[in-house]
């Protein structure tokens, strides 16, 4: 049914929205004086028990916070970087006792695994990859995919690493001609990988063989789309995209997220659902995260908006707190929390 028309679901007026669906459960303050850049969640074994921990990243420090009690967190480990600043935390779907981070200035120069020593007494870090890296994604089964540019061409490689962060193997995928911007796994298909390119194509690989299977153009309405989630159903591929480069246009603006259906056999695609801001709200996508049926985005207005992808409309709007715009937002991979951060180091857990 969802393919019969491009839905423009009922959009509640902005003043009906509030963060009521979101309950603030705790807040933590990154003590580092440098600018906060990212947040994430990871399972970490502490005294023989795996616990859902929070990872915060500032420009020159990454910290692991363990839960102390309701609403309370204690900084347990801190990895420091003196030369190259941290750009992002790279979430690894099924890994514990290890955090991956991307370091660089405008572009990623290094990807490192952050761990602690076997006695748990000291932090350590392992260099996994270096170069002019454009895109990186943590995959299931301790794999990490990245694309990088050399003088002549583009390399797309998969690193498999061991529990101690050491590299176990490297595999190259056939690179497309265009620069890859983002990667996404296809849910339930560990042998398949998607990427989006700078020319607004979705490309697909077979991870077992390294073959580049398809290049599928997904329209000229938006450039440089980001792929957040993909799943295959009944012979079609459903892909959730966002559009950081979309211009604000028309009375409703541009959609922040978009669900498309692609036929991999023909490379033809159609819009299934467009996810707009509530009426009266301005802004476009800055950065965001999708988990299960929920999408969250930091907007240029400084607010965070949340969509139920099945209902089709925005279900919560989180305005800036204490006159501080939101900078980044992530769904926790360890529980049902939303992690929202501000540049000054405040992290709010909803």
């Amino acid at each position: 049914d969802s393919l019969k028309q491009t839905e423009r679901a009922d959009v509640p007026a902005g003043d009906n929205l509030n963060p009521g669906n979101l309950q603030l459960v705790s807040k933590l303050k990154n003590p580092s004086g440098s600018c906060s850049v990212d947040v994430g969640a990871v399972w970490w074994e502490i005294a023989g028990v795996k616990q859902p921990c929070i990872v915060t990243a500032c420009e020159y420090a990454v910290s692991l916070w363990k839960p102390l009690g309701p609403g309370q967190w204690r900084e347990m480990y801190s990895w420091l970087f003196t030369e190259v600043p941290v750009l992002q935390i790279v979430s690894m779907p099924d890994v514990y006792n290890l955090v991956c981070v991307a370091l660089g200035n405008l572009e990623i120069r290094e990807i490192r695994a952050l761990l602690c020593s076997s006695d748990g007494e000291s932090e350590k870090q392992v260099l996994l990859s270096s170069g002019n890296i454009h895109a990186v994604l943590g995959l299931t089964e301790r794999r990490l995919v990245s694309s990088s540019r050399t003088l002549c061409d583009q390399q797309v490689e998969i690193i498999t690493f061991a529990e101690d962060g050491g590299s176990q193997g490297k595999q190259f995928l056939m690179p497309p001609e265009e620069t890859v911007l983002t990667f996404a796994e296809i849910e339930g298909m560990q042998e398949a990988l998607l990427g989006t390119t700078i020319m607004n194509n979705v490309v697909m690989w077979n991870l077992n063989t390294g073959q580049l299977l398809r290049k599928m153009h997904v329209g000229d309405s938006y450039q440089a789309s980001i792929c957040h989630k993909a799943y295959s159903e009944m012979g079609l591929l459903f892909v959730v995209l966002s559009h950081p480069c979309a211009k604000e246009r028309g009375p409703s603006g541009s959609p922040v997220f978009q669900l498309i259906a692609v036929n991999p056999k023909t490379a033809l695609s159609v819009d299934v659902m467009l996810y707009y801001l509530p009426q009266g709200q301005a802004g476009r996508f800055l950065e965001g995260d999708v988990k299960d049926n929920f999408a969250a985005a930091v907007l240029t207005s400084g607010a965070i908006a949340i969509w139920d992808l099945l209902l089709g409309h925005c279900t919560a709007l989180l305005p800036p707190i204490s006159d501080q715009n939101w900078s980044f937002v992530k769904w926790s991979g360890t529980d049902s929390h939303l992690l929202a951060g501000q540049k000054d180091g405040n992290i709010f857990v909803y």
Binding site: A192, Q211, R214, K265, T266, V270
Partner: peptide, 23 residues
């Protein structure tokens, strides 16, 4: 839009594309 816009659909698209694509 209808499924006709997307052309013929195959449930085994991944295997079929893998057998057609250059190694």
């Amino acid at each position: 839009c209808s499924q006709a816009d997307l052309g013929p659909i195959s449930i085994n698209w991944f295997e079929e594309l893998s057998s057609e694509a250059p190694p």
